[in-house]
């Protein structure tokens, strides 16, 4: 008996097909005007008919997002290290970051355009501003949650504080840092789009805003689909990074084979060194 070829298509694809089906059914049954919700064929036709356009603007937004994300990671981890090691920086920089974080950052977007112009710089700055805080907070938490035994171990090994940072604190903080990065990468995308909304000639935010002005709802939807694809791809990129960088973490070990020790020792193996990370 031959297996139905449809059975090879993964569930995730069926989910997306299902969303489109419900969308199309709503349009047909409820007779929704195309200006409110265009039919699926029209949106997909626009997307694939003008694919070059979406690729170019999508690439532009993605580029700004990745640059903002990279800056956030480097600067964020650097600031966190400073905050953890310096009482002064904790009182000044950390306080400043908390204050800035409580301002609705979107409100600052017009300021960035005034300062940095309508080019890429203002979008990248927006992306950094929105995403950096998640990384600083999670990295500070991760660096601080070194198990007391490991602090003692570092001291008993008589290494410099730099060694303790590089060989104990940072690896121990990796799960936290990656958790912060996962949040930050989607926030960097938000920042890039917000920047493009305020003033731009490029990027998906620009396409959405100008299409809205021209009542081209199909283009708005096509752009949102591309954005969803970018966001999802970025998320899975981070999942992949996690799998590669912290295969040792409890959250990554659910499928780890319980390799049998030679002796059935029953002693408690528990050692919750880094279990507090995933904040």
């Amino acid at each position: 008996m031959k297996k139905n070829p449809l059975a090879y298509i993964p569930m995730q694809v069926w989910t997306i097909v299902g969303i489109f089906a419900v969308w199309q059914a709503c349009v047909m049954v409820l007779d929704i005007k195309p200006i409110i919700l265009p039919p699926v064929p029209k949106v997909l036709g626009e997307l694939f008919g003008n694919f070059g356009l979406y690729l170019r603007h999508g690439g532009h937004t993605l580029g700004n997002t990745l640059i903002a994300f990279a800056i956030s990671v480097v600067a964020g981890v650097g600031m966190a290290i400073g905050i953890v090691y310096s009482k002064f920086l904790e009182k000044t920089l950390y306080t400043l970051l908390v204050t800035v974080n409580n301002v609705p950052k979107v409100a600052l977007a017009p300021l960035f355009v005034i300062w940095l112009g309508t080019g890429n710089a203002s979008k990248i700055a927006m992306g950094v501003l929105i995403s950096i805080f998640a990384i600083v907070i999670d990295t500070v938490l991760g660096l601080r949650s070194l198990h007391p035994d490991l602090i003692d171990l570092g001291r008993a090994m008589r290494g410099s504080e730099f060694k303790v940072l590089m060989k104990l604190r940072l690896p121990n903080a990796m799960p936290s840092i990656l958790a912060g990065m996962k949040v930050a990468i989607s926030l960097a995308l938000v920042g890039a789009i917000v920047g493009e909304f305020v003033a731009a000639q490029n990027g998906l935010g620009f396409v959405i805003l100008s299409s809205q002005g021209a009542f081209r709802t199909d283009r708005v939807y096509a752009s949102i689909i591309v954005l969803a694809a970018i966001g999802t791809a970025l998320y899975y990129m981070m999942e992949y990074a996690e799998a590669k960088l912290i295969p040792w973490h409890e959250s990554r070990r659910s499928h780890a084979r319980p390799t049998a020790p030679s002796k059935p020792a029953k002693g408690p193996v528990a050692q919750p060194v880094a279990s507090d990370a995933k904040a």
């Binding site: 198990h147 035994d149 490991l150 003692d152 171990l153 008993a156 104990l168 690896p171 121990n172 990796m174 912290i246 040792w248 973490h249 050692q271 060194v273 880094a274």
Partner: peptide, 14 residues
């Protein structure tokens, strides 16, 4: 010149 052994082994998972 000293080595220290902890009650819970304090091995690092990474």
């Amino acid at each position: 010149g000293l080595g220290f052994v902890f009650q819970r082994d304090a091995l690092v998972n990474w």
